[in-house]
Design a protein around this nucleic acid. Structure first.
Lengths: 198, 198
DNA sequence: TTGATTTTTTAACATTTGTAAAAGGAATCG
DNA sequence: CGATTCCTTTTACAAATGTTAAAAAATCAA
């Protein structure tokens, strides 16, 4: 089966292992979350979510890599990447309910656990611990985003590239450089130049 | 009284008017929040919070303007501004509990309502609606930050400047250009050049 | 494997942005 | 008011990054 959602029995343990450090929730709460999840297997280079649709699913990357991208004057720009054991969602659409100009594309054959966001938000009323869990998850994502601004605002492209190679060497091995360039806010040509410097 | 906190009777209505569109809370909840607030009056150019301290207060700007700033290789960089009727906090410290390399400086004689964050987080257990209110406030701030990344990542300095003049003409009237330049991620000289272009 | 396609690098030149220093203006304070 | 200080602009030059096109390298599919 490819490019399909499934309701076959799914192993949710990686998801709950990911949740645990943020906030512990009851077994009952875990079951409530499981009930609003489904598995998606997406082949390399396909879109998990297409440009123009409103984000109503929060994805957990079980296997593979994905990126959020959009077009600016016809050129493809990568906003962010997500690796195994992390969440990915177009938050500006998730939290506003407006259609997103961004899409999510898969860079390797990947498996996702999709959590329905409208159903999740309904669970918040019933399970305050689920609300607290996701509050903490998004607070943490917010902090990462603030740190990223600092990087874009006043580090040179070269500094940003070298920081990336140190923090996540995996990036360079598994992601095409053309995607890394726009993620760093520069062109492919500039990135090649930086790489050639030593 | 200047540069001092006060527990004199404070008019909290602007704060609760600001909260309302995010999430309605009970009168009891409002009183609980009021009980953990205090007023700070800070004169122009002074620091509301200094570099190196851990953020334990969320500020509401009642009057005036403030900015979050830090030093990169000795040069002063503005991360963000806050005007009347908005919140300001160094979230990377607020949510991690670590000391902040950033400070908050006041650009005009200003009045703030300071909300103690440890006491606020305690209220979350007692008042789920307060937790929900702040969850929504920070989700909204998160969305703004994501949009700012897009601006820094793939708009030119000139585009960013013109976007700013359109979105918030007030910026230009009330904030020294040297602070606007670093906020846009460029030097004062570059900003002057852009401004001179027409 | 071969051939086709995609990705990455290189080159040459244009444009943008940075740096340092000086000059002009504006605000502040006694 | 005058003097000082701070802010903004201007100038000249340097460095970084963008643009376009082509070559080289890597990847993919038959």
């Amino acid at each position: 089966m490819t490019d399909q959602s499934s309701h076959f029995p799914i192993d949710y343990s990686p998801l709950f292992d990911y949740f645990d450090p943020f906030h512990r929730i009851s077994q009952e709460a875990k079951e409530a979350i499981s009930a609003i999840c489904s598995l998606s297997k997406i082949p390399k280079n396909k879109d998990l979510q297409s440009i123009g649709h409103t984000c109503r699913t929060i994805y957990f990357v079980k296997k593979g890599i994905a990126r959020i991208y959009y077009y600016k004057d016809g050129t493809d720009i990568t906003e962010s990447f997500a690796f195994e054991n992390s969440l990915i969602a177009r938050v500006e659409s998730l939290f506003t309910g407006k259609p997103s100009r961004k899409g999510i594309q898969v860079l390797e054959d990947s498996d996702f656990i999709g959590i329905s966001s409208p159903l999740l938000f309904d669970l918040y009323d019933q399970f305050p611990d689920i609300e607290r869990l996701f509050r903490k998850i998004f607070e943490s994502a917010y902090v990462e985003t603030v740190n990223r601004i600092e990087s874009l605002q006043f580090h040179s492209a070269e500094e940003r590239y070298h920081a990336l190679t140190q923090e996540s060497p995996d990036f360079l091995k598994r992601i095409p450089l053309k995607y890394i360039a726009s993620y760093l806010g520069i062109t492919q040509v500039s990135l090649s130049r930086i790489r050639a410097q030593r």
